[in-house]
Design a protein around this nucleic acid. Structure first.
Lengths: 344, 344
DNA sequence: TTGTACGCGTTATCAA
DNA sequence: TTGATAACGCGTACAA
C-alpha cells in the first residue's frame, strides 16, 4: 500500500535506482530492453517522483509565487481572475506550480516573496499592478529573486532590466475612438481617471491621439475624469452631453456603465437619443448589457509572462524568452450591435 | 554569500547541527546561554529552514491545493476572488501555503489533485462549488487525500464524512423577505434560477418559508426563474409587476440588476413608483448602485475551512476543528438606504 | 544538555 | 550501459 520510490522500484526490478532514474530523466542512456521493463514497472506501479526530494536535490522548487490582492472592485477582480487562471494553466503546462501569498503592502510583498524564496518554496515571483516609482522589481533583483511583471515599468520602460508584459491601453482607446469616428461621429468624448494614474493617462492618450490625428477641433474640452465607478461615469456623461458630445470612450466598464445610465435617464426625460459608449476591460457586465468594450488580452499576457519567467528560471525548459515586440500586447475592441446606432 | 544551513551555522558556532535544530524546534532542550547564542546567530545570519528538506523529512509539504475555475461571470468570480484571498491569508496564518491548479472538469480535478498529492506537492485539497451527486469528496477519500469543501454535500448532508462549510442561503433570503414584510409590504416576489440548482432552490426556500410564515395568500405565483443574468431579471420583473408585486428578493445581483432595470423602464414610461429589490452576493455592482443585497460571509467560510483542514492534516497545529454549528454560516443583509422607500 | 548516526527520495559524478 | 557513492538540508532516536 505504500507508494513506490525509486529505491523500492529498483529493488523489485533487480536494477540500481540510478537506472530507474535514468529511464525517467535520460532514457537514451538506458538499453532499450531494460528501459522498457523499467518503464512498464513505473507505469504499473503508479510511481511518481517526490517533488520534495527533487527540489532538495536540484535546489529548485519549480514553483512560482504571486501575491493575491484583496478583491477590491468587481472589475479589477474579474481581470485578475482571468489572468490568474491562465497564469496557473500556463505554469502547469510548463511543469511549474503557482503558489499564492498575501501581503499588507508592496513592502511586505517583497518581504513575503523573499521569505518564500529563501526557504526554497518558490524560484521566482510574478508581480502585478506596476506603477511609477515601483520599487519591487529593483528590490527583488537586489535579493536575487527572478521576477516577471504584469504591467510595464512606468516611466523607465527603456531601462527596465526585468521581464514584463503589459496591455497597450493606448492602442485600445485609439482604436475605439477611430471606430466611433469611422461611424461618422466627430464629437467623441473621453471619461477617465484623474491625472497621475499611469494606465489612466495611457488610455486617455489613445483618445487624444485619435482625435488629433482626425483633425477635429476643440476635443480637449470633451473629457472628464474622477474616481473609478458608476457615479463618476454618470455625472461626467451628463456634463459631456451638455457639450454636445456624440459618443464616448471610457477608461473602464464601471465608468461606461455610469455613462450609459446618464444617457438612459436623459433619454426618458426628454427626447429619445441613444449614443454610443465604449467601455474598457470587456467585463461580463459589459457583455450582459450589450455594451461595447475594449478587451484586454490577459490570457496572452499570462501565457507570455509565465513562459518568459520559466525560461528565465530554467533556460533548458520549454519556457520561451520574450521578444521585445511581444511586451506590449494590443487589446481587441469587442463591439456589440446595440452600440452602433445610425448617426442622428 | 551562500545561504546558511543548519550545518554551516553549527560549524560557525562550534556546536552540532542538532543543537541548532533544537533551538528552533525544541528550545527547552537547550541550555539558555547556548540557546541565546544560537538564536542570535540564526537571526543575524537570516537563516531559514529549507522547506524541501523539511517536506522530505517530515513527509508533508504544508501546502494545500485548490482548483481555480476559469473566470466565468463576474459575480461568481468576485465571490471566489474574496474566498481565495481569505483562504490564502488563513493558510498563511497557520503556516501553510496554497497552491493552485487548473482542470478541465471534476474528473480531471480529482486526477490533478491526486497527482499533486502523490508527488508530495500538497497535503490536502479544497473543493468549491459542490453539488448533488458530487463524486469528488468520495473519490478523494478513496485515494486517501484529505479535503475540505466550500459548499455543503447536497442531498446527503447528514452522512457526509468530509469537512465542509457553506453559506446558509435560505436563512439569507428568509431574512431579506422578512425585512421587506416588516416594511409593510405583503406581495413579495422572488426571482431565481431554474429548479434543480441546489443553491437556487435553497434560496427560494427561504422566501417560501417567510411568506408562509407570514400567512400571506397566493404568494406561490409571485415567482419567476431563468438562467442567471440581467435579461432574466428584467423580463421576470416585468411579469411580476403585472401581478402587483410590491417588492422582490433575487437569487443573485445579476437578476436583481435586471429587475431594477425593469422597474426603471416602467417608472419612466408610466407613473413614478420605486419598489424595493434585494439582490444576493453583495457584489461591488450592488454597492455601486446602492442596491440592497444579501452578503455571503465568504471570509468566515474561508477561515473556518482552512483552519479545519489544517487541523485535519496536523492536529498538533494551530488549526481548529469545525464545530457542527459552524458549518452553515448565515449571510448578512446589507441594506442600502435607497432600497427602503415608504410603502406606496 | 550535547553530539553521532541515520534516513527522507532524488540526481550527478565517476568508475566499472 | 550500468551501478556504487556522495550530496542536497533537515529531524530524531539514541548514545554519551
Amino acid at each position: 500500500m505504500t507508494r513506490p520510490t525509486l529505491v523500492s522500484l529498483a529493488n523489485e526490478l533487480g536494477v540500481s535506482r540510478q537506472t530507474v532514474s535514468n529511464v525517467i530523466n535520460a532514457p537514451h542512456l538506458v538499453r532499450p530492453e531494460t528501459r522498457e521493463r523499467v518503464q512498464k514497472a513505473i507505469t504499473e506501479s503508479g510511481y511518481r517522483p517526490n517533488v520534495a526530494a527533487q527540489a532538495l536535490r536540484n535546489q529548485r522548487s519549480r514553483t512560482i509565487g504571486m501575491r493575491i490582492l484583496p478583491a477590491s472592485d468587481g472589475i479589477n477582480g474579474a481581470i485578475m481572475d482571468r489572468f490568474l487562471h491562465h497564469l496557473v494553466a500556463e505554469c502547469q503546462e510548463l511543469g511549474y506550480n503557482l503558489m499564492l501569498f498575501t501581503a499588507t503592502d508592496e513592502r511586505d510583498e517583497v518581504a513575503q516573496a523573499r521569505e518564500l524564496f529563501e526557504r526554497g518554496s518558490i524560484d521566482g515571483a510574478v508581480l502585478t499592478g506596476t506603477h511609477a516609482d515601483d520599487r519591487r522589481p529593483a528590490e527583488l533583483a537586489e535579493l536575487g529573486i527572478p521576477c516577471a511583471a504584469f504591467g510595464r515599468p512606468w516611466g523607465k520602460v527603456e531601462q527596465a532590466d526585468h521581464i514584463w508584459v503589459d496591455v497597450d491601453g493606448r492602442a485600445g482607446t485609439r482604436a475605439a475612438t477611430r471606430h466611433l469616428l469611422s461611424l461618422g461621429h466627430t464629437r467623441i468624448g473621453f471619461i477617465g481617471w484623474p491625472r497621475g494614474s499611469e494606465s489612466g493617462d495611457d488610455r486617455r492618450a489613445g483618445w487624444s491621439e485619435a482625435m488629433t490625428e482626425a483633425g477635429i477641433e476643440g476635443w480637449e474640452q470633451w473629457q472628464a475624469d474622477g474616481e473609478d465607478g458608476t457615479p463618476t461615469g454618470l455625472v461626467s456623461m451628463q456634463r459631456l452631453e451638455e457639450l454636445g458630445v456624440e459618443g464616448v470612450v471610457c477608461a473602464s466598464d464601471s465608468l461606461a456603465l455610469g455613462a450609459r445610465e446618464a444617457i438612459r435617464r436623459r433619454c426618458t426625460e426628454s427626447h429619445f437619443g441613444e449614443l454610443p459608449v465604449i467601455g474598457f476591460d470587456n467585463t461580463p457586465v459589459a457583455a450582459a448589457i450589450t455594451m461595447s468594450s475594449i478587451a484586454q488580452p490577459v490570457e496572452r499576457c499570462a501565457q507570455l509572462l509565465a513562459s518568459a519567467l520559466v525560461h528565465d528560471l530554467d533556460p533548458k525548459s520549454r519556457g520561451r524568452a520574450l521578444q521585445p515586440d511581444e511586451r506590449l500586447v494590443v487589446p481587441v475592441l469587442a463591439p456589440r450591435s446595440i452600440e452602433l446606432p445610425p448617426v442622428r
